[in-house]
Amino acid sequence: MDTTNRAVAAAVRDAIWRAGKTQSAVADEIGMNRTTWQRRITGKRAFQVIDLLRVARVLGADAGRFLDTITEKVS
């Protein structure tokens, strides 16, 4: 498993938790099937930028800040 993928996944999980949502609710709201979501949220596969932007929208987060936060946690 790629270290960057795991770090991004951890940052996304943290953002979901802080927003008070569930992972399954976010997956449903962005229209991602469960298998793909599980691979991404565990870091087995990389999130695509469009997926991260959709997650930010669902969480009510500013997309730029959301991506900056993830970048900081990964670096």
Rank of each mutant, 00 (worst) to 15 (best):
R54S: 15
D68Q: 15
D51L: 12
V8W: 08
F66L: 02
K73P: 06
V58N: 00
V58T: 03
N33L: 05
L52V: 10
M32A: 11
V55W: 10
T69F: 08
G31N: 09
A63E: 14
T69Y: 05
T4R: 15
G31M: 05
D62W: 09
R34P: 06
V8K: 09
F66K: 02
R34W: 01
A15V: 06
T36L: 01
Q38Y: 11
T22R: 06
R13G: 00
M1W: 00
D68F: 05
T22A: 03
L59E: 08
L59P: 02
A46S: 11
I30C: 06
E29C: 11
A63N: 02
A19M: 11
I50M: 02
E72S: 02
L67G: 14
D14I: 00
A10S: 14
G60C: 12
D2I: 13
R18M: 15
V12W: 02
L53C: 15
A10E: 15
A11R: 06
D14R: 15
A9Y: 06
D14E: 13
R54I: 05
A27D: 04
A7V: 07
S75W: 03
R54H: 13
R65K: 14
V26G: 05
Q38T: 08
D28T: 15
M32F: 02
K21Y: 07
T36S: 04
V58H: 01
E29Q: 15
R39I: 03
R18W: 07
S24D: 12
A7S: 13
T42Y: 05
A19R: 08
T42I: 12
R57V: 14
A19E: 04
G20Q: 01
V49L: 13
